[in-house]
Amino acid sequence: MKSSSLKIGLALFLVLVIVPLVFRSSSYSMTVLINAAILGFMSLGVWLTFSIGRINISQGAFGLIGGYITAILASRFGVPFWLCILASGVGAALLGALIGLPILRLRGVYFSMLTLSLTEATRLVALTATGVTGGASGILNIPTPFQGENSYLELYLFAAVLLILGTLAVWRITNTRLGRVFRALQQDEALASSFGVNVSAYRVLAFSLCCGFGGVGGSMLTMFVQSIYPTSFTVTDSTNFMLYCFLGGLGSVFGPALGALVLFLGFQLLAPLGAYQTLAYAAIMILAMLVLPNGLLSLRLPKRTHALEKANVS
């Protein structure tokens, strides 16, 4: 299982590298790919909170937090972009630890509902705190180092490298003792604490890492579109991160990246349906959940290449 998922990972990253070489002249395709890579990166965090047995619908909130940190630092203080990304990641992770400490006591649907509300609450804070965030009119014209004719390719490669590094980091966590502790928490927190695992510390660690991924992703997306609004990340986005993990597969660290790629591309491919785009997307999602409850990565190889080919067609 482990070696086969490694192959899938390799295939996925090949797609990430070859596809832009083909589509580099089409700014639309590149936009879609950049989005897919960043969203995949953010979903990795959500996947990590799945591994401690929590369904997290708050990644949009931390995307928003990371986005605003970057927007404010870059546009008001002229901080260089890589420092902005770092600050966004660290800021979101710290805030995540602070918020996670009390809310991670909850499990199941209660935790999920609370994280969902957190996304909405963050949007409202961004809307109300006009002095800091600019309120509904947002922050525009954020300076970015990605300019000129190759900007899309540069941004894409940057996002793809980030996604690969992020996936490797999560893969490493999952395959060391840390991952075993996380899985122990998922199965039985009382049993884990009986042999001395500080359950709440490890829960906060996993959640805080997740928020860090969210902050970095939010920073990247903000840098890409050079603007941020309270509606840049909504409950829908938070839900999507969760769906990317579900559809990609919770059994493998490559699930989030694959899920984000396939679902984000899929949504774009449905664009010709106009007003029915979301409806069709939702219907396909429901079908996919029914047919593939364990995600795309649970498919056997022939079918799996089929899924990747579909992704390539775009």
Partner: peptide, 12 residues
């Protein structure tokens, strides 16, 4: 908490 009690030497 239980994990501290475990560290001190009482394990269930």
């Amino acid at each position: 908490p239980q994990h501290v009690v475990a560290r001190l030497g009482v394990v269930r």
